Simulated scan of single mutants.
Amino acid sequence: MKKFVFIVTDRNRNNLHVGLSTNIISTMDFYRKMPNLFFDAGQQLTRLVYFEELNSEANAEQRFKTINRFTRSQKEKMIRAVNTDWIDLTLGLNYENRAKVSMVRQSSLMFMS
């Protein structure tokens, strides 16, 4: 089963939160629906700036623990290595997810024809 280790931040990049999830899209939806769960309204953790997809739960948990122990500067360096502008990566994930669903629907329609 795939697992995701991710880092989310607020719009001002003041807070960095490391998380672990099996479904990163639904996790980010949860963060957006419950914006004041961890911080006040000005510090909503709604921007996914980094994620890794791992194939085993043990590897994901180990990576989560490792990243969680990083200092802020180490996390920032890791983020900038793959996302220099700190853009919200959920936009791409949502697009990719919609494309997969569309392809599955098209193939099922072709099968039914």
Score class of each variant (00 low, 15 high):
Lys77Trp: 08
Lys77Ile: 09
Glu61Lys: 13
Asn23Pro: 04
Thr71His: 01
Gln106Asn: 12
Lys100Pro: 13
Thr90Ile: 12
Gln74Ser: 01
His17Leu: 12
Lys33Val: 11
Lys2His: 14
Thr22Phe: 14
Met78Trp: 02
Arg80Trp: 00
Ser26His: 14
Glu53Trp: 07
Leu91Phe: 06
Asn14Pro: 03
Leu48Thr: 00
Arg11Cys: 15
Gly42Met: 03
Glu76Thr: 06
Asn94Lys: 10
Thr9Lys: 04
Phe38Gln: 07
Arg80Gln: 02
Met103Ile: 09
Glu53Ile: 09
Asn15Pro: 09
Gly19Thr: 04
Met34Val: 09
Gly19Leu: 01
Leu93Val: 03
Leu37Glu: 15
Ala60Phe: 05
Met1Lys: 15
Asn12Tyr: 11
Glu61Gln: 13
Ser113Pro: 10
Val8Asn: 04
Ile24His: 00
Ile79Thr: 02
Met78Cys: 01
Asp10Pro: 05
Ser102Gln: 14
Phe4Cys: 11
Asp29Tyr: 07
Met103Lys: 12
Tyr95Trp: 11
Ile24Thr: 03
Gly42Leu: 02
Met112Leu: 11
Ile25Val: 09
Thr71Ile: 03
Leu16His: 00
Phe51Trp: 11
Asn36Gly: 08
Leu91Lys: 08
Thr46His: 14
Asn14Thr: 12
Phe111Gln: 04
Val101Met: 04
Gly92Leu: 06
Lys33Leu: 15
Arg72Met: 06
Arg69Lys: 13
Gln74Gly: 00
Phe6Ala: 02
Asn97Ala: 08
Phe30Met: 12
Thr90His: 06
Asn83Phe: 00
Arg69Leu: 06
Phe64Pro: 09
Ser102Leu: 13
Gly19Glu: 03
Trp86Ile: 02
Asp88Gln: 00
